[in-house]
């Protein structure tokens, strides 16, 4: 069992180590489907569900899965939950399916999920893995909603380019520069190395 401090750190991981702006994982769905707030919430929650479930099962099976075949095993677990989400959304949320349907199967190759499986769930107990999944999933959703709000707002005042892919790239770049600035001011020494590498050695 982990102590309280570690639990708190894990729970805040989604903000401090935000998967999108700090770890720079899962950029493709971030840029493609943060064009509106509702798309962001839909894809964010779908990804969070898969992340929580895959973290739970990978953590449960971490002592059984042989090291050599762990990646294929993780991918099968993740793909199973993605299929569940895909079937659920297609059946019960037809509107959402029309707007983000093409990106739901691509949750399988979202690096956040495989990254958390490899870096966290395969090494930690079930409870903290689930907490990590919830925190990272909500962190991802929050980033998508933030970008969605900015892009939808800019499009509403006539700058429709911001809802296209081009706008996604630009808003993402500007927000990342802002995060660099804020994190640098907050704890300059810890982040300096990361920041001087331009965030590219991950």
């Amino acid at each position: 069992m982990i102590n309280k401090k570690e639990l708190k750190e894990t729970a805040l991981g989604g903000i401090i180590n935000n998967p999108v702006f700090v770890l720079v994982l899962g950029t493709c769905p971030t840029i493609a489907k943060s064009d509106t707030v509702s798309n962001g919430i839909g894809l964010g929650l779908a990804t969070a569900f898969v992340l929580i479930c895959s973290n739970l099962f990978i953590s449960l099976l971490r002592k059984i899965i042989p090291d050599k075949v762990r990646l294929p095993a993780y991918i099968v677990i993740i793909a199973t939950f993605v299929t569940i989400v895909q079937l659920f959304v297609a059946k019960f949320l037809p509107d959402l399916n029309a707007s983000i349907g093409a990106f739901i199967p691509l949750i399988v190759v979202n690096c956040i999920i495989l990254g958390r499986a490899e870096a966290f769930a395969s090494k930690n107990d079930v409870l903290s893995s689930v907490i990590d999944g919830v925190s990272m999933g909500l962190g991802f959703t929050l980033s998508l909603v933030l970008m969605g709000a900015i892009r939808q707002g800019l499009a509403a005042i006539g700058l429709t380019i911001f809802q296209a892919t081009a706008g996604g790239f630009i808003v993402f770049g500007l927000l990342m520069a802002l995060f660099n600035y804020v994190l640098y001011k907050a704890d300059g020494h810890k982040r300096r190395v990361l920041f001087e590498n331009g965030g590219e050695d991950r």
Binding site: V24, A166, G167, G168, F169, I170, F172, G173, L174, M176, A177, L178, N180, Y181, Y184, E196, N197, G198, G199, E200
Partner: peptide, 15 residues
């Protein structure tokens, strides 16, 4: 300074 690396690459990609 704060645009070095990924942020400027993303903005370039946007253009």
């Amino acid at each position: 300074k704060f645009f070095k690396g990924l942020p400027i690459a993303l903005i370039t990609a946007g253009i």
